[in-house]
């Protein structure tokens, strides 16, 4: 109990004292996760809208694969990105390993299937609703995709937030490709892992509390958007 109380005390102190190191870790965590989510949303929403509108052989198989990839183990993604970016790998010449860019790449690989799969579920339903209207207007598939993405925007924001929730709490992949280097690639989750291994549990717990705070903030934003969406559902 004492340790938990200490952790809360340390967490508040760190936050209120504007500890430089803590804020740089939080800043990098946000930078990496928000960049990954932005790229994943651009890719995932396009894939989602495309698969909702286009029909071709293997369409269902792709959706099954995307659904399966939602549960992709982060360490496996980390390992794959590590092999690609390591000196002997195909993209080794870029020298990206142990940089925030490598961490963003790993998170993009991890989140894109999640964003795409959730987008398909949402946009397919919307497409089903609009289908006859679209066909009566003889719209191109591209015009249909644009309309679905616009009309489904509120739901897609929720999807993006779900992706952000996964990205900000992820540790396995970013640890492998980022290396948890102080002032360079250390983020919240890798810092927690490090402090735990060092035995400074109170500090690790304090960082955990701050991370949970982020997670709660994200969930609150989702709830707010959902309730707003319900009210505006028919907007």
């Amino acid at each position: 109990m004492g340790e938990i109380a200490d952790a809360f005390w340390i967490a508040f102190n760190l936050l209120l004292s504007f500890d430089k190191e803590l804020y740089s870790i939080i800043g990098l965590s946000l930078k990496v996760s928000l960049s990954a989510v932005a790229i994943s949303c651009a890719l995932g929403f396009t894939i989602g809208a495309g698969l909702s509108v286009y029909r071709f052989p293997g369409h269902r198989l792709i959706i099954i694969i995307l659904n399966a990839l939602m549960g992709l183990p982060p360490v496996v993604v980390g390992l794959i990105v590590y092999l690609i970016l390591s000196r002997s790998g195909p993209l080794g010449v870029l020298g990206l390993l142990y940089t925030p860019t490598a961490m963003i790449i790993a998170q993009v690989m991890l989140i894109t299937p999640l964003v795409a799969a959730l987008s398909i579920q949402m946009l397919e339903e919307l497409h089903l609703e609009y289908d006859e209207f679209f066909r009566s207007l003889r719209l191109t598939n591209f015009a249909k995709m644009k309309t679905l993405l616009w009309d489904g925007r509120r739901g897609l924001v929720t999807v993006g937030l779900a992706g952000f929730g996964r990205a900000i709490s992820e540790v396995g992949a970013v640890m492998i490709v980022g290396g948890n280097i102080n002032h360079l690639t250390r983020i919240m989750t890798t810092a927690i892992a490090l402090e735990t291994s060092k035995g400074t549990l109170a500090l690790a717990l304090a960082l955990g509390i701050i991370l949970i705070g982020f997670s709660l903030a994200v969930n609150a934003a989702v709830m707010l958007l959902r309730s707003n969406s319900k009210g505006q559902r028919y907007a």
Binding site: E129, Y130, E132, F133, T147, D151, G152, R233, Y234, A235
Partner: peptide, 8 residues
């Protein structure tokens, strides 16, 4: 059942 877009 009118198909209306989620717009004004």
């Amino acid at each position: 059942d009118p198909v209306l877009l989620r717009r004004t």
